Computed example of a mutant assay.
Amino acid sequence: MIDNIVPAIGKILIDKGWTLGTAESCTGGLVAATLTDFSGSSAWFSGAVVAYSNQIKMSLLHVPEATLIEHGAVSEATVLAMAEGVCRTLGTDAGVSLSGIAGPTGGTPDKPVGTVWIGWCVNGTCRAEKFLFPGDRAAVKRQSLETVLTGLLELLKKN
């Protein structure tokens, strides 16, 4: 699956002359690592911010402190701000963001383990979606990776 999606993302970005950045929390750089596993990705992948702490979300991705206080790090508002922020920080046309609870600890009744918010910004159009992925930490991270890339490809095709 990934072997088909990443080259398709790269082709669209190259054809448009666009670049991509990632802002990752729960995946800890997995998305960036996966993208850079593909030869030629330097033509369209600018970089990543692994924003595990709220301080990094605020300082590097411009997530307002009020957003984190009111909604929490694992929220629609936060991943939208992260996706917009990574585009601004890295100067990219497209950005993706992820924040979630990969487990096995950290879950709450409102946000159980496996809760992941994913954000996408493509050429100024931003959206976010909440997911509840089953499985252990590795499974949650893998499903997050596949979902963020599938969603990005869909948005790129529409723009």
Score class of each variant (00 low, 15 high):
Leu153Lys: 02
Leu13His: 01
Ala23Asp: 06
Ala33Thr: 10
Ser144His: 01
Arg137Tyr: 03
Gly119Ser: 12
Pro112Leu: 11
Val96Pro: 09
Pro104Ser: 09
Leu149Trp: 02
Leu156Gln: 06
Ser59Pro: 11
Gly107Pro: 11
Thr108Cys: 10
Val74Trp: 04
Ile101Trp: 02
Leu60Asp: 10
Pro134Thr: 01
Ser144Val: 00
Ile9Gly: 02
Glu129Asp: 15
Pro104His: 08
Asp136Cys: 12
Val74Thr: 07
Thr27Gln: 06
Arg88Gln: 09
Gln55Thr: 15
Trp18Leu: 09
Glu24Ser: 03
Val113Arg: 08
Tyr52His: 09
Met1His: 15
Leu80Arg: 12
His71Gly: 04
Glu24His: 05
Leu149Asp: 03
Lys158Asn: 14
Asp136Arg: 15
Leu156His: 02
Gly119Ala: 11
Gly47Ala: 12
Arg137Ala: 04
Thr147Ala: 09
Val63Arg: 07
Gly28Ile: 00
Gly107Tyr: 00
Gly10Gln: 08
Arg127Glu: 13
Gly106Ser: 09
Ser53Met: 11
Tyr52Leu: 07
Trp18Cys: 11
Ser41Lys: 13
Glu146Trp: 00
Arg137Cys: 04
Tyr52Glu: 04
Pro7Glu: 05
Ala77His: 06
Gly114Val: 03
Lys11Ile: 01
Pro112Trp: 03
Lys57Ser: 05
Gly100Ala: 05
His71Phe: 09
Ser42Gly: 12
Trp117Asn: 03
Ile12Asp: 01
Asp93Gly: 10
Pro104Asn: 10
Ser42Leu: 14
Gly21Ser: 10
Asp3Ser: 15
Val74Gln: 01
Gly47Asn: 10
Ala23Ser: 10
Asp15Glu: 13
Asp110Trp: 01
Glu76Arg: 15
Gly85His: 05
Phe131His: 14
Gly47Asp: 04
Ala83His: 05
Phe133Ile: 02
Ser25Asp: 05
Gly107Glu: 06
Ile9Ser: 04
Leu90Asn: 04
Ser42Val: 08
Trp18Phe: 08
Lys130Glu: 15
Asn159Gln: 13
Ser25Thr: 10
Leu156Phe: 00
Ser97Thr: 04
Lys158Ala: 14
Val49Glu: 06
Leu155Trp: 03
Arg137Ile: 07
Lys111Asp: 07
Gly151Trp: 00
Phe45Met: 09
Asp93Lys: 12
Lys157Glu: 13
Val96Ala: 05
Thr150His: 11
Ser46Glu: 14
Gly107Trp: 00
His62Pro: 11
Ser39Asn: 03
Gly119Asp: 08
Glu70Ile: 07
Gly40Tyr: 10
Ser53His: 10
Ala51Cys: 01
Glu154Phe: 00
Thr19Gly: 04
His71Glu: 12
Val96Trp: 00
Ala81Cys: 13
Pro134Val: 04
Ser99Glu: 11
Gly119Arg: 11
His62Gln: 15
Lys157Pro: 06
Pro104Glu: 05
Ser97Asn: 07
Leu90Thr: 04
Phe38His: 12
Val6Ser: 01
Gly135Lys: 03
